[in-house]
Design a protein around this nucleic acid. Structure first.
Lengths: 338, 338
DNA sequence: TTGAAAGCGGTACCAC
DNA sequence: GTGGTACCGCTTTCAA
């Protein structure tokens, strides 16, 4: 059996309460008493029981990171993995533990398990990696009394706190960049149209904005939907090159699809970037090592994760007045692929 | 305030005990009573309080996935991310939650925080992603009374349960493969030599074994150490090509370093795979999309994760007699790079 | 089959 | 500054 507070109290010849005091508000305890108690704690190797503490304090110093996954997922998402790792770091910096949970979209009662984590008081708050979160669940989420922040998606109308990046601007910058390099027929490989989600949508918006600014028309068939996976990028490229007028540039909505496109282009015998420019989105670690090195849009993942945890902790603390969202800047990273 | 069991009891006109019974061993409850209680539960939206339950039952149905990271880490490890995701899936399948925690190697008291999770009864068990775990901590771990399983590293002498793969055989297969393709000067880019760790070591062993079987000598300077990161693979390759007799094949201990090597080789003007064959290890999702597509060694990550969770759950349940380790097969995946 | 009471290991609130 | 006591919400005896 593990050592309890009561045993420490006995060992130090004080009451349980006093031990509790040295553990928490140790200011109230006389130095000599505290010293004695601490010695016994050390000696017995006492550690407070987490469950008992949570029960009494009714919070757990535990946050959840919820991945909302489309099913079937083409493959694990390296970007999500990165975000998650960043959140983990941010959480630990704030002395909280992190529970990882994946919600499978379309699973019966998908959100119930998240809600249960709250009602069971298992977690104090959750950050939702929500790029694929359909708009209609936002209403449900907003109606909850539980602290939740959305990451990787905006949600201005829902009133939910969120952290996003300037996706549209990023894609726009990519379009303008390739246009500046002399490309005229610029296609776009986007995220899944179904269910409609904001992450995919804002990238698409950025594409259209960029095209407009460059005075380019969006040709028939130049917008193709992928599923964020490598293979879908390859498929999209093949589809584009069956068009009567294939593009001379492809702007992809993430790095994975960009790599897939690169791959398929090569299989078609295209010289890169001569025959086709390709840009990605996300700047995954491998991007700079590809051939050609991928021109892409950097997302400030670390900062976003930190901001999300910060916002979440505010919400947990019940600070209503504070900032409820952050939109961080993206940055075009020019390499060889475009 | 959340709904409590007592309120359910009142609502159903029974004692708290009876409610508890329908929640747990519902066999003991008369069907009609159970139905009534369940109705009230449903109606009130009752969920049992996690802390109270853990306190009473003295287990948490929570597992931890501990990443043991060298510091500084060159970049987030996509392989670790994959493993972690797989463990998460395996844990959820076993109806356990997963806490993610990163131990920074060299941090003062690195292991104390893990031990604290146990003594505070925060978790029931932990799987350690232990490929970079130095040998000397194994002794400490083995002395603990807490359920722990090592993933991605063997540890036969410690008595700790572990799940590993046939790393040496995988590398050996890669060496034999490139030799079969006519390569004679085969170099090896391995993991960090310091601190000495088994994952790196067994890959190196496999290299030597493979060379021996092929009747090849390991030339001076043909074994270079990386740190698992992309950049280190690139640096290793450059270093190899400063040798009087550069290799005509490079076997890398992971895919990231292989990609780095590919990149550096191209920068040197080498034609791939004509001038240089490169193999990786791990078969990350991007491997098949590289140019040239990466010949690599597949690791059964899903199976390993499942096995690890299984072993851990056995250990938690105190099943001493059961299997304490698993070594899963690797598989050479031949593509274009070698 | 059900209920009463004790207690898991802490913390809050009250006296002293 | 310190100790007594109730109680967080649930499960486990033990009786009824």
């Amino acid at each position: 059996m593990a050592v309890t507070l009561k045993q420490v109290a006995e060992g130090a010849g004080v009451s349980p309460q006093t031990v509790s005091n040295v553990l928490n508000k140790s200011l109230l305890v006389k130095p000599s008493t505290r010293a004695r108690v601490e010695e016994v704690i050390e000696q017995l190797g006492y550690e407070p029981n987490f469950a008992a503490r949570s029960l009494r304090r009714s919070h757990t110093r535990t946050l959840a990171c919820i991945l909302y996954q489309r099913t079937p997922e083409p493959e694990p998402d390296p970007y999500a993995a990165l975000v998650q790792a960043s959140i983990s770091t941010a959480a630990r910096a704030a002395k909280h533990d992190l529970l990882i949970h994946t919600l499978l979209s379309g699973e019966p009662g998908e959100l119930r398990v998240l809600e249960a984590m709250f009602t069971q008081r298992r977690i104090d708050g959750a950050v939702l990696l929500a790029s694929d979160l359909p708009d209609d669940v936002l209403g449900l989420l907003a109606a909850w009394p539980h602290p939740v922040v959305l990451l990787d998606r905006d949600a201005p109308e829902s009133g939910l706190p969120y952290v996003a990046a300037t996706y549209a601007e990023g894609v726009r910058a990519a379009v303008r960049h390739v246009h500046g390099r002399g490309r005229q027929r610029i296609a776009f490989v986007g995220g899944p149209p179904q269910p409609l989600n904001r992450g995919a949508q804002s990238r698409l918006t950025g594409y259209h904005a960029g095209m407009r600014e460059c005075g380019l028309d969006v040709e028939e068939g130049y917008v193709v939907a992928g599923d964020w996976g490598y293979a879908s990028g390859a498929a999209a490229l093949r589809q584009l090159f069956e068009l009567p007028e294939p593009p001379d540039a492809v702007v992809a909505a993430n790095d994975r699809m960009a790599l897939g496109a690169l791959h398929a282009a090569r299989a078609l015998g295209l010289r890169l970037p001569h025959d086709l420019a390709v840009t990605g989105f996300g700047d995954l670690d491998f991007a700079r090592y590809l051939h050609p090195a991928l021109t892409t849009v950097d997302l400030p993942v670390q900062d976003m994760a930190r901001a999300a945890v910060q916002l979440l902790l505010n919400a947990v603390a019940g600070e209503v007045k504070s900032v409820t969202h952050r939109v961080l800047p993206t940055r075009l990273v020019v390499r060889q692929s475009a």
